[in-house]
């Protein structure tokens, strides 16, 4: 029997996916329903906003970029 699961398809590159999995495992696997392939995961629809936010803050922590200052030219 065919089943339909409600959720949000998240498309990202492999490095981001690793971060998403990391976040998921640190929070009782509360976000991800299923890993689909290298670049796609299925996430609970209600949790997507929170997941995005956690990803943002994680990236800020890990990737310290020099803030490019604006040059007037």
């Amino acid at each position: 029997m065919v089943k339909a699961t409600r959720g949000t398809l998240v498309k990202c590159d492999a490095s981001i996916k690793a971060m998403l999995l990391d976040i998921d495992s640190k929070h009782r696997n509360d976000f991800i329903i299923e890993e689909l392939d290298e670049e796609h995961v299925l996430v609970k629809e209600t949790k997507i906003a929170e997941l995005k936010q956690r990803l943002q803050s994680m990236m800020k922590e890990r990737l310290k970029e020099p803030e490019s200052s604006e040059s007037e030219s």
Binding site: A4, T5, R6, G7, T8, L9, V10, K11, C12, I16, L20, I33, E34, L36, L42, V43, E45, I48, K52, L55
Partner: peptide, 8 residues
């Protein structure tokens, strides 16, 4: 990330 709501 790019997200789409829907059904699997």
């Amino acid at each position: 990330v790019e997200t789409t709501n829907g059904f699997l």
